[in-house]
């Protein structure tokens, strides 16, 4: 049996989660702590991927990163191709899952007593240092939960990935796409095996999460 889709899916979702963390944690902090014009709009945009049909997201993403799209053309100038590569799959998985990370982390930041941060300010600590020593340690559980959910969502993405990366065997065919492919070809045994692997991986992650969440700080 070809295990390539499993490895690809793991790689894609790890990278997608890293990307999500990089963008999502600052976004969550801004949404939890700052008041500015356009804040509600930003919050709406963040949640949108959660409620829009994946094909709609995939379509617009493709418009952006396709060889004629603004991002696609800019990257093309450097010889980097995005659409219908495994990198597009990473982007697709990240877009699909970022809302879960942002919402969970934002809720976590919001439960951190503002007075703790104010106290830290009067004690002379920089905002950066306050974030790492006070805010994040007190919100880490929500951040962890958001990260695991985002990972699982990225791992299971189907629609967006299909739209922007296609389902090229040995190249962009992730685990969910591979399962669909096997079913279409009546290879039920393989479909079954891949599905069980998918379940095992996500279950393992969720169990690990609940174990970690029992730690204090």
């Amino acid at each position: 049996m070809d295990l390539f889709p499993v490895w690809l899916s793991l790689r894609v979702s790890v990278l997608a989660t890293a990307l999500t963390l990089l963008v999502g944690v600052p976004a969550a902090w801004v949404l939890a702590r700052k008041r500015f014009p356009g804040r509600d709009l930003l919050e709406g945009v963040v949640v949108l991927p959660l409620v829009l049909p994946p094909t709609v997201l995939g379509y617009y993403l493709l418009v952006l990163i396709g060889s004629q799209g603004p991002i696609g053309r800019a990257l093309g100038a450097f010889g980097i191709e995005l659409a219908f590569t495994w990198r597009a799959a990473v982007l697709a998985a990240a877009v699909g899952s970022i809302a879960l990370l942002v919402k969970a982390t934002q809720a976590g930041f919001e439960t951190v007593d503002r007075r703790l941060e104010q106290a830290a300010r009067t004690l002379g600590r920089s905002e950066w240092s306050i974030f790492w020593s006070v805010t994040l340690p007190l919100a880490w559980r929500s951040l962890l939960a958001g990260t695991v959910l985002a990972f699982c969502r990225a791992f299971g993405d189907f629609g967006i990935t299909l739209m922007v990366a296609g389902s090229i065997p040995g190249k962009t065919q992730t685990l969910p796409l591979a399962i669909y492919d096997r079913v279409q070809a009546f290879q039920m045994g393989e479909a079954n095996a891949l599905a069980l692997i998918a379940i095992a991986i996500t279950l393992l992650l969720l169990l690990g999460l609940s174990r970690l969440a029992r730690l204090r700080y």
Binding site: D113, R115, L116, Q118, A119, A120, R121, T122, L123, G124, R125, S126, S133, V134, P137, L138, Y217
Partner: peptide, 29 residues
């Protein structure tokens, strides 16, 4: 900014850092 004023502040709710020991709280500043 508060960081540059060097004024101490004591809150009604204490506002101690719950994730740190007493020692680390006092050493924080």
């Amino acid at each position: 900014i508060p960081q540059k004023r060097n004024f101490g502040f004591v809150f009604q709710s204490y506002a101690l850092f719950p994730n740190m020991t007493v020692f680390d709280n006092v050493a924080f500043g």
